[in-house]
Amino acid sequence: MCTALSIKSDEGKYFFGRNMDLAYTFNQAVMIIPKSFQFKDKVTGNMITNNRAIIGMGTVIDNHPTIADGMNENGLACAGLNFAGYAYWEKEPVEGKTNIGPYDFIQWVLSNHDTIEEVKKDIENIELVDISLNEKTPCPTLHWMISDKTGKSIVVEKTKNKFAFYDNTVGVMTNNPTFDWHLTNLNEYLYLTPNYPNDTKWSDQELTPLGIGAGSLGIPGDFAPASRFVRIAYIRAHMTSVKNDIQAVTQFFHMLDYVKMVKGGVITKDGLEDLTLYSSCMDQQEGIYYYKSYDNNRISAVDMKKEKLEGKELKIFLYPTTQDINYQN
């Protein structure tokens, strides 16, 4: 379970990020992968060289960095969201293709491209292969939302039937089923409005709204992917003006809170509590990664432009797990 989002400020700058909904931690932390950093490709055995500096939330498994969401130094951003039951990976490498594990797809996107058009052009040349990082870490079941700093966005999905990308005309994404289904499903909710409804009359009975918010009566309030997709698409479509970076970041996190998972709301079939482990917001123009965690909802920020963007070593930042309260007396 996850939700991804892209918004635009009044200054024309774009912000991209996501809720990571998960029942467990994965030793996550914000990391910077510099240009020239190298690691071993688990599919081919060759060494991969990072071509662009990347900042994002991820983890390191057997000296192999994997990214859950991030952006590169030129503002291209990507997030992987759960796509269980739909995602399909090839069992063996495909001749004539660039074969990678699905856990390396974000790195491939961000290391080699700056725009959506570049990704669209190259995506037909790659293949995703079911080769795990190690015996304890199976391949993730994912699909991806990618956005550049001009606001163009796509969703990439590989199912058993096809490897496809879709232009993302609503600027949001959740989980199952496929993205085209979610777009069609929005037609069921075209009556929703933030405006106050007019009084009406049924037969001889006068009808009037019972309170503020009646225009959105019927919007789904549960945690299912289809419902979260409707809610985040609705709130994005009716987003009010955000004049500057701080307003944009603040509004972004409020919007993600609208589809946030809270402890006790969802129990997985394994008996675990699903929750929003962290929320992220990336300033694609300035290269700043903002985030907050379930256990510390103060916004933290890492500015990649303040760090060395070329080198051989990862830089990993401390992940806050204790609540930070501003005591005023």
Rank of each mutant, 00 (worst) to 15 (best):
R236N: 14
Q251N: 11
L217N: 11
M255R: 01
Y189K: 05
T240F: 12
K263W: 00
F253K: 02
K201I: 09
L190D: 08
E206G: 04
N195G: 00
H182Q: 12
W202M: 14
P209L: 08
G218T: 03
N187R: 15
P197A: 06
P220V: 11
S203R: 11
E188A: 12
G265F: 01
T208R: 12
I235Q: 08
N198F: 05
P177V: 07
T240G: 14
V259N: 07
P197R: 03
F252H: 05
H254V: 00
A248H: 03
M239P: 01
V266P: 02
P220C: 09
P209F: 08
N198V: 01
L217Q: 10
G264L: 11
P220Q: 08
P194H: 05
S241E: 14
L190Y: 03
A237Q: 13
I235L: 14
Y196F: 15
S203Q: 15
D257H: 13
A214C: 11
E206K: 15
V266C: 05
W181N: 00
G211M: 05
I246C: 00
L183R: 06
M261N: 12
K201W: 00
F223Q: 14
G218W: 09
K243W: 01
T240I: 03
V249R: 01
G213V: 10
M261E: 12
G211L: 03
V262S: 08
V230E: 04
A237E: 14
Y258M: 09
Y258L: 02
L217T: 12
P197W: 06
P194G: 07
T208L: 10
T250A: 12
H254D: 10
R228G: 10
F223A: 12
M255T: 00
F229W: 13
E188C: 10
G213L: 08
R228Y: 08
D222E: 10
H238S: 06
P225L: 02
R228M: 09
E206P: 00
L183E: 11
K260W: 05
G215V: 09
G265W: 01
Y191E: 04
H238R: 06
M255S: 03
E188T: 07
R236F: 05
Q205P: 00
H182C: 02
K201L: 05
Y191K: 04
R231Y: 09
P194T: 11
D180Q: 09
S216V: 13
A224D: 11
N244K: 11
L207M: 15
G221T: 08
L210G: 15
Y234I: 02
V262C: 03
T240M: 13
